[in-house]
Structures are given as structure tokens and as C-alpha cells.
Design a protein around this nucleic acid. Structure first.
Length: 486
RNA sequence: GGCGCUAUCGUCUAGGGGACUAGGACGGGGCCCUCUCAAGGCCCAAACACGGGUUCGAAUCCCGUUAGCGCUACCA
């Protein structure tokens, strides 16, 4: 047996959807696990909706996710001649026939069938046309499609994830394989291409299950052994409906923009519908490849849970050394308009990454530590300062005075902690009362690393200047008396 | 409507006839730690859709019911 060949075949009619990304991931994992090849094919036969931009976005999305391909991308649109030749071969062999029914006639037939309460099935009226009638219509220039002549027997296959699935030929109808303009319909194009590039395993979404019997029928007609089919379950939104735009972020690019790591996204996507068995959650890529199997894929649709994705991202974030985060943080900083040149960002990243879940949060926190005045830009920060009441400015001034006495050469987390502890003791303050005003003044938030570490990580002059600025600038407002009592 | 697929905590899942008092993770709640928030540690609540079989014994196998989803184009 030769090594498996799988393909990921998106149509470039939209962005790379998380569902598509997961399908790609499963294909990729299977190829890596088996030592097979992954082929990329862009199904761009729908000229109306396909764009080059979408193709670019899909390729970029896969690359970002770290899903590489061994062959392609092939563009389905370039193989129209083969599709057509294949269809005509079936026609010549009597396995397909010309259908002269117009769209309007078909609509009428369909409506009639529906009104009668039954399912529409093409009645093969054009299959009964005599050779003379056909010749005459062709001579008159009547447009026609090619329909596949479907046999009535059972069509079944052993699905690698679902087990045996079976359809009856009589429940299907003679589907169109070639449009009147000579271009191929999806099912024909797919089978023609999959045969051409020798695909051994078709791993795709289970919304394709109902296409599979038609495709198997085509394989039979071509006299080619069908590939192994593996239909992976859909991804749903939190309301249990098929994931769509109104569920918020559904494109891979959205998560890239949110600061999700490719590795975290891969891990999360892989565990959505597949399980390595046991209690594993964080699964490094090599193990994922090692453990992957089609049989272990879930048969049930899965709900996309953003909260768990973010948790997982946080896990990857904490595990990654600051050094590896540096480039990404640098990019985000640039986007935020922060000049980070000439500063070693590593200590700052280390200080904030533990309580961040995305690289975006890391960058924002680093930005504030580089330039605390950014905290004031945040209206929420100002509101917080105000809420802290009348004792705030006084304590802040005390802290600033004490900290100023630390010589530049001794500015460090340990020394700062000692000074603040002494200060609290000397003024009978709770440690928190000395710490929190500093925290809020410096970050505009009640949340940060320990205050002494925060101060150490912010440049001494910058920190002191900011503390002064906030302490002096603070004016008691109308609501402050109340706040102080509360 | 027809055809098909599916059914374990709110969510992702483990489970392959006895190891099930149904395990883990996210999320939720509580406690510890603590200058805040996270992280970390400990604890709690939370599920086998329903009904019939098969079997000494069913979450696990079979049938039915219900519900959800998919497809039902000269879209992919």
C-alpha cells in the first residue's frame, strides 16, 4: 500500500472559517501521522463568488496556523477541460445523458412535486428522448446539461469516523454533472480532481455526507476505486446552530488579531471533535501527530467555546519565555504607537504575561509600564482614581516622598518593598493602602503585578514623575466625601 | 415533506458489557495564598434525552420515540 494522500479543498468564497481550519488540521495531522502527503486545492469553479483575495487569506491563515501542504495549491478552475472530457466520456458510455429541460421547466416540476407532498426527483424525461429528437434539438441549438444516470442499487461505504453509512440509489436523482455552458458541477469536478491527484483519503465536514453517494456513483462509473471517506462533525455556535457570522468571530484571522497563538489555536481546534484519550488538554504538536487517528474523531457536532480557547492561550502564553514573545509584542507595541526602542522588554513581559491571556493584553500592559501617562488616556483609569477617595492623594504623596529617597543605583524590587513597608508602618497604614494608590496611578487599573515589582519594572524617573503628576493633579470632587466614608 | 447524521455535566470530552459512587478540562461557586488581580493548591455544584429489549449484569449492544443538525440547485 502506498502512503496516503489527503487534500484540503476550500472554496475561496469567504475567509478561512474555524470549521475549515479544523478540517485542514485533521487532514494535516493524518498526513503527518501516516507519513502521507497533504495536497491543497482551491475550488474556485464558482466564478461569481470566488476571489483572489479570499484565496490569499486562506493561504495566509493556514500558514499562520502552521499547517503546511506538500503539493499545490491547485486551482480547480484550471482543469475545466479534463472535467468536461470526463463528463463526455460518461455520455459516450451511456452513463450520462443530455437534459434539455430549462431551469424554468425544472422549477415547475419541483414545485409540483412539493405541492404533492413528495420529494422531487428528476423524472428522466430527457433520458427517454430518441436519438432523432436529440439530434434535432442539438441542431436547433437548444442548450443542454449533462445528467448522470444513477443506478438504483445501494450505495454504502465504511466511513472512517461514522462507520457504515448507506444510501439507496432510488432516493437520489440524476444529478447534473455539466452545466449548459460546459463547466463542471461540484460533484463531478471533485471526483475528477481527486482521481487525477490520486487522493486516498477524503477528510471533510459531515455536511458532505449527502454528496458522498453521488461521488461514489461517479467513481464506479469511472471504474475507479473510491477513496476512504472520513466525515468530521460540524462546529456549532453557543446556541447550537451552525457557526456563522452572527456568532461573532468565526474567521481564523479574527483570532490572529485577538492575539491568539497559532499553537493554542491548533491545540484547541484539535480537541474540538478529537481526543487523544484520557485527560489530556495541552497536547504538544509532536504528540498530537503521534496520537492522531480518524477513528478517535467524535461523531457529534461541537460547540465553539471561546472561553476555553482563551484559557488555553493563557496556558501557552505563560509557558513561553519572554524572549519568544518579544517579536510579537514589538509588533503590537508599534501598532499601539509606542516607541519601545532602547528598552529591554523582557523583564516587562515577564512581569505581565502571567496575568494576561493574549499577546494583545501583554502589549497593552507593557505599553502602560513604558509610559504610565497612557493609563490616564483610559477613562476607566481616571474613574478608578476618583473612586479611591480623599486618602488617595495623601498616601500617594507619602509614597512618592519615600520612594524618591531611594538612590537611582538602588532602585529594585526588594528595596522598594522595604521602603513601602516601612512607610506603611510609620503611618499606621495597611500595606494595601500604601500600595494600591501607586498601582492605580501607574497603571490606571486595580490589577497588576505586585506593586514593588511594578515600580522596579517602570523606569525610576518615569515612575516618580507619574506619581507626582497624579498626586498633584488630583482634586476632590463632589462624590469623594461619600466615597471616603464608604 | 424526503433522505441522512447525531444524542454523557452549561461547554469540550474520558468511557469499547462488570474497574462507574460516571473521570478530567473550561466556565461557575467556596477556601487557602496575598498589597490588587491572575497564576497555583484544595474543595463544591453539575451529565449518561426518553421508552422498550438483549444479558446474570448496560453510559457501553439492538429497536423505537423525541429532539437537534445537515443535504434536498445548471452553489461549493
Amino acid at each position: 500500500m502506498t502512503s496516503p494522500r489527503v487534500r484540503f479543498a476550500p472554496s475561496p468564497t469567504g475567509y478561512l472559517h474555524v470549521g475549515g481550519a479544523r478540517t485542514a488540521l485533521f487532514n494535516w495531522l493524518f498526513a503527518r501521522h501516516t507519513g502521507g502527503a497533504m495536497v491543497l486545492r482551491i475550488e474556485d469553479t464558482d466564478r461569481e463568488r470566488s476571489t483572489e483575495g479570499h484565496t490569499r487569506v486562506i493561504l495566509d491563515g493556514l500558514t499562520w496556523l502552521g499547517i503546511g501542504w506538500d503539493e499545490g495549491p491547485y486551482f480547480q478552475g484550471e482543469y475545466g477541460a479534463r472535467h468536461r472530457a470526463d463528463a463526455e466520456r460518461l455520455l459516450a458510455q451511456g452513463k450520462a445523458y443530455r437534459c434539455f429541460c430549462t431551469r424554468e421547466e425544472l422549477d415547475v416540476q419541483r414545485a409540483r412535486a412539493e405541492a404533492a407532498g413528495g420529494a422531487f426527483r428528476y423524472d428522466r424525461r430527457c433520458h427517454r428522448l430518441s436519438a432523432v429528437e436529440i439530434a434535432e434539438r442539438i441542431r436547433n441549438g437548444a442548450p443542454f446539461t449533462l445528467r448522470f444516470l444513477l443506478q438504483d442499487d445501494e450505495i454504502a461505504w465504511d466511513d472512517a469516523v461514522h462507520g457504515r453509512i448507506s444510501f439507496q440509489g432510488r432516493d437520489l436523482d440524476d444529478f447534473v454533472i455539466l452545466r449548459s455552458d460546459g463547466t463542471a458541477i461540484y460533484n463531478l469536478a471533485v471526483v475528477s480532481d481527486d482521481i487525477d491527484i490520486r487522493i486516498s483519503h477524503v477528510i471533510r465536514g459531515d455536511d458532505h455526507i449527502s454528496n458522498t453517494p453521488k461521488q461514489i456513483a461517479l467513481y464506479r462509473a469511472f471504474g475507479v476505486e473510491p477513496p476512504v471517506f472520513a466525515h468530521v462533525p460540524m462546529i456549532l455556535g453557543t446556541d447550537g446552530k451552525k457557526l456563522s457570522k452572527r456568532h461573532g468571530a468565526t474567521a481564523v484571522g479574527d483570532y490572529q488579531d485577538k492575539g491568539i497563538f497559532p499553537a493554542a489555536m491548533r491545540n484547541f481546534l484539535a480537541l474540538l471533535g478529537w481526543s487523544p484519550g484520557g485527560d489530556r488538554e495541552i497536547v504538544p504538536e509532536p504528540e498530537m501527530i503521534e496520537l492522531f487517528s480518524l477513528e478517535a474523531i467524535q461523531t457529534k457536532a461541537a460547540v465553539f467555546d471561546t472561553a476555553k480557547l482563551e484559557w488555553m492561550n493563557g496556558q501557552y502564553l505563560s509557558a513561553l519565555p519572554a524572549l519568544e514573545l518579544l517579536p510579537a509584542v514589538g509588533r503590537e507595541l508599534e501598532r499601539l504607537g509606542v516607541n519601545a526602542a532602547r528598552r529591554d522588554l523582557s523583564p516587562l513581559i515577564d512581569a505581565v504575561k502571567g496575568r494576561s491571556r493574549t499577546i494583545l493584553e501583554v502589549a497593552e500592559r507593557v505599553a502602560v509600564r513604558l509610559d504610565p501617562s497612557r493609563a490616564a488616556l483610559d477613562a476607566k483609569g481616571e474613574a478608578l482614581i476618583r473612586k479611591l477617595g480623599v486618602g488617595f492623594a495623601a498616601n500617594l504623596r507619602l509614597a512618592a516622598d519615600a520612594l524618591e529617597r531611594i538612590p537611582p543605583g538602588e532602585w529594585g524590587a526588594e528595596r522598594i518593598l522595604g521602603v513601602l513597608k516601612d512607610l506603611a508602618e510609620a503611618h499606621a497604614l495597611k500595606l494595601g493602602d500604601a500600595m494600591q494608590p501607586v498601582r492605580v496611578a501607574l497603571t490606571g487599573s486595580t490589577v497588576s503585578e505586585p506593586v514593588n515589582e511594578l515600580l522596579a519594572v517602570v523606569d525610576r524617573e518615569t515612575a516618580l514623575a507619574r506619581l507626582r503628576e497624579v498626586a498633584e493633579g488630583w482634586k476632590p470632587g463632589a462624590g469623594d466625601a461619600v466615597a471616603a466614608r464608604a
